[in-house]
Design a protein around this nucleic acid. Structure first.
Lengths: 271, 271
DNA sequence: TCGCTCTATCTTGTATACCAGTTGATATTC
DNA sequence: GAATATCAACTGGTATACAAGATAGAGCGA
């Protein structure tokens, strides 16, 4: 077995091992190298990362608590399905937090951090980024800094955790350029409303903005996820997987949850 | 050394060991058997609980992630100070979540779970509980079920975690009977507004209700905390502690944070 | 061919061993 | 006597060992 996830042997003690395993696993989850529904053991991860089971376990339990994984009683770990009813709930939490943040920002005489955001988002078309993933990173920072402007670190912590939960599907949404353009326009409008202390308009715009994102994510189908997996396989130059799952089963793109069971291997099918 | 935290040897495998250590540590924190500012080692906890370091460590890292403890690099663990600026932030989060919940409840034609709450809180004085701690438990359930009525499990998770963070100081607030009475009255009024679909009034009442609680908690002084510690010591029939801290230092009850450093042992002082 | 049983193997949960960094008391120096 | 150097004991981070439950599959019987 090769070890695509292995860390370099050098620079061992720069960061805690458990932390690095955590980061690596999270990356693998977002890159769909670990697929929803996939099962794996602690030993597998330990071998792949070169660490022992102890730090691996710490990383896994943390990811489980964050909702990405589930441990099955003495019977291995499992990557949680992409459950769109949960994503809906997380989007609602995000809306609640960000609308409350806007209320607090517009109540400030000089809304904190808004000036910097304006220089990023209220720019003419020539200065705009067009690379989807790059805009995606900027977009997350936009929302994050709005919440940061409230000065409430606990609120920010919650917002960050929600953002990270949604990221796995949201990143798939930023491959299309039209969403990039819409993002620029909507962010610019929201910032304008905030600096003018027009709370209810800013909130209305934000609610719509988030709702559009939610609907867009809702449309993510098995097809898109399948593409992402293929991409992950190609990148790895290593088609084998941690474990071969049972393929087949339900395939409808309208199911509420996406997992390996309804993903399967359809490379030989016609669309 | 005796072992006040030791589990009974029987009934070993009913619940995961790490889980029990976690629960026991949390109980000890809330009972001020582990005091803010206090330092301790993994081995100490392992001896006291009869478990090995592995499950102890799992419990400790979890409590650290929840904000109760801090691990110092190869130099022991520390109970976090009671930081009232953080409690303020948590109260704000609680307000945001519960007001949003009211919005969603009043939008329902038949607000979920409200009927049951009414039978508990809209009762005449003879049927009311008077025992502070008992009412405290009921109070937490009141707020929790309001959020549950939204049907958003993720929102509820967040609300629960915030509630548990605040609990350590809020429990001190329910020793006085006047707060009990106020709680009954305020809860009854909030429920009335909700069933009448008067969202803004319900929100106004809830905001005030939470704000009063926050202010009440803010007034908790070193004195109250000192009493709680004494109580914990008396209950334990075992005055010795996990570690003897350095006493003395700042004593002002107006400091933003409460810890052992500004608590000390003042049993021989006059008030 | 189907279904049952048994068992070898794999899994996590827990305990223990080892290592390197931290610390605080003590010896030492001036 | 005060400042400093030293070192032994203690700490958490990690690796490994061991135990017991879960599982899949071979074997067997009908």
């Amino acid at each position: 077995m090769s070890a695509p996830l292995r860390f370099p042997a050098e620079r061992r003690h720069t960061l805690a091992l458990a932390e690095r395993v955590y980061a690596e696993l999270k990356r693998a989850l977002f890159a769909f190298e670990l697929l929803p529904g996939e099962r794996f053991s602690e030993n597998t991860i330990a071998e792949r990362t070169g660490a022992s089971r102890t730090p691996v376990r710490e990383a896994l339990t943390r990811l489980a608590r964050e909702g990405f994984l589930t441990v099955q009683n003495r019977s291995g770990w499992r990557v949680n399905d992409l459950d769109f009813s949960i994503f809906d709930q997380l989007y609602e939490v995000r809306t609640i937090v960000e609308l409350a943040s806007i209320d607090r920002l517009t109540a400030q005489t000089e809304p904190a951090g808004i000036a910097e955001l304006i220089t990023l988002w209220q720019v003419n078309e020539a200065e705009r980024l067009t690379d989807g993933p790059a805009v995606f990173v900027q977009d997350e920072q936009f929302h994050s800094r709005l919440v940061a402007g409230t000065g409430n670190a606990e609120l920010q912590r919650i917002h960050t955790s929600v953002t990270e939960r949604i990221r796995i599907v949201r990143q798939l949404d930023f491959t299309e350029s039209y969403r990039v353009e819409a993002t620029y326009n909507e962010h610019a409008a929201i910032l304008t409303a905030i600096v003018q202390h027009r709370a209810s308009e800013a909130k209305r715009l934000m609610q719509t903005h988030i709702e559009l994102s939610r609907q867009s994510v809702r449309k993510i189908s098995l097809h898109r996820l399948y593409e992402a997996r293929q991409q992950a396989r190609d990148d790895a130059h290593q088609p084998e997987r941690l474990s071969e799952p049972a393929t087949g089963g339900i395939r409808s793109p309208l199911t509420e949850t996406l997992s390996e069971k309804n993903l399967g291997d359809r490379s030989h099918e016609s669309s």
